[in-house]
């Protein structure tokens, strides 16, 4: 117990990094996932193929590999640098890799949501003169989102937990890294394990409850 109290502030610093990663990745993966699903349902074959290829490649690659590729491939080899400050650069490389990965799951959740929207909705939208992108934005996607709020919640929950593999991108700042770092001096500590698990639960449980509530509230009656 003592080591949890002693290293608490240090671990808390790391946990805040996980929260920061989560917040930024949530926004980016939702945006990118929406773009991807728009490509996958677009009438333009090239866009459809590109969206499908992206999802199939990235979704089926292990996250640790994607993160390692972001750091070693894109950053070191190709020279994609977000910041001269290594820790800031590491943060954004993780954000990039994790968002790119999570976006696939957002895309697929949304695509199943689109399948719940009756075909007549798109037809009525076309019939009043909305273009494809207008009808996607105003009619199809809003209904698709409402249909998959709970699954999207699950995707976000998985993403939050996935921030703990940030270390794979060589970014040594998150709570998982700091936990191992602490264990190197204190030895393995059950209270620290439990403390960190509880911290994640404190964030994730409300998200599950909130998205469940939101899904009911926003459900589209037909």
């Amino acid at each position: 117990m003592d080591e949890l109290i002693e290293y608490g502030p240090y671990l808390w610093e790391g946990f805040q990094v996980n929260l920061g990663l989560s917040a930024v990745c949530a926004v980016l993966s939702l945006v990118l996932g929406t773009i991807l699903v728009s490509m996958r349902v677009s009438p333009t074959p090239v866009l459809r193929a590109a969206g499908t290829a992206y999802v199939n490649i990235v979704r089926n690659t292990p996250l640790t590999l994607i993160l390692a590729f972001s750091a070693l491939g894109l950053s070191d080899q190709i020279g994609l640098v977000f910041s001269e400050e290594p820790s800031t650069n590491g943060f954004w490389l993780v954000v990039m890799g994790l968002s790119a990965y999570t976006a696939c799951f957002v895309c697929e959740a949304l695509r199943s949501g689109i399948n719940t929207v009756p075909f007549g909705q798109a037809e009525a939208a076309r019939a009043i003169g909305l273009t494809f992108s207008q009808s996607l934005r105003m009619i199809i996607l809003p209904q698709a989102f409402r249909a998959v709020i709970s699954p999207l919640g699950s995707v976000m929950i998985a993403m939050i937990k996935n921030t703990t593999v940030a270390i794979a991108a060589g970014y040594l700042a998150d709570v998982a890294f700091k936990m191992k770092d602490t264990f190197d001096t204190t030895g393995v500590s059950i209270p620290i394990f439990i403390g960190i698990a509880l911290a994640f639960m404190a964030v994730i449980l409300p998200i599950g409850l909130f998205t469940g509530w939101l899904a009911k509230r926003l459900a589209v009656a037909r």
Partner: peptide
């Protein structure tokens, strides 16, 4: 196709058997 088709459709109303009102 395109904008011209959308404009045409905006000038021709359509009423469907199954109403197809925007549910949200």
């Amino acid at each position: 196709e395109g904008k011209a088709l959308a404009r045409l459709r905006s000038e021709v109303g359509m009423v469907f058997q199954s109403f197809n009102l925007f549910a949200h």
